[in-house]
Amino acid sequence: MSDLHADAVRVLKDWDAPDPAQEQLRLDYLDHLAQHDDGMWKPCRPGHITASALVIDPVGGRVLLTLHRKLKMWLQMGGHCEPGDATLADSALREATEESGIAGLTLLRAEPVKLDRHETPCAWHLDVQYAAIAEPDAVEEISEESLDLKWYGFDEVGAVADGSVEALLARTRAVIGV
């Protein structure tokens, strides 16, 4: 079992889920990790833990989304954990930085904002979702994982992204009080 696996168990045990559905996902993720020593890594079937971060500019009331190269959907930044990630939070911040091209992002808080389980072409992703704060003058740079990056006003997200992104934004806004 890796240190990252142990961190994920700790994070999920300590996290206060905001509602019963999130509590059930938290318990499901803990069961997954208890059953799979390799539950953090992409080769694990039927699924694996992933980490993502919604990049927000709370001052400007906007969120940066990526047009995912493979899925062709507007999503938050995120993906697979890597052996060099010390913690889930580190994984989420690394993914957000790599995919947005924005240096100096900071996590809104050390614990997750939300959990989301979804099926992808490789397996089920048991996504642990964070929020990352960008400075108002942050300039994004498209990575090889994106077809495009674009800032959207909080009220524009529903027109371009699916319900999972809308739910992550709503939960993030509730946490920061905007």
Rank of each mutant, 00 (worst) to 15 (best):
D16Y: 04
E145M: 14
T106P: 02
A159N: 14
L54V: 07
D19E: 12
E95S: 15
A159I: 03
R45G: 01
D127I: 01
A161T: 02
S2C: 13
D57Y: 03
K114S: 15
P43C: 09
D155Y: 08
A103D: 14
G104Q: 10
E99G: 04
S91A: 15
V55G: 00
R26L: 01
V113N: 01
D155C: 09
A123P: 02
W124N: 08
Y29W: 05
R10T: 14
D127L: 10
H125R: 09
Q35F: 12
E82V: 14
R62S: 10
T172W: 04
G60R: 11
E156R: 06
T50I: 08
H68N: 15
D57I: 09
R94V: 03
V59F: 06
R109L: 11
K114N: 12
L108C: 08
G78W: 10
D57N: 13
L27W: 07
D7T: 01
R10W: 10
A174I: 02
M73E: 15
L105F: 05
I142D: 03
A89I: 07
G163H: 12
V139T: 14
D3T: 06
W15S: 06
K70M: 15
E145W: 13
M40R: 01
A159D: 14
K72P: 06
M73K: 15
P136S: 11
Q129R: 15
A161K: 01
P20F: 02
D37R: 14
A53C: 12
K13E: 15
A138F: 13
Y130E: 03
A138P: 08
P18N: 04
K114M: 14
W15V: 03
D16H: 05
P121C: 04
L168I: 08
G39Q: 02
D90E: 11
I133Q: 00
E111C: 01
A21D: 15
K150V: 14
A161Y: 05
Q24F: 01
L126T: 00
V55N: 06
E141Y: 03
T66P: 08
E156K: 09
V128F: 03
A51I: 03
D137R: 11
H80R: 09
P58Y: 04
P43G: 03
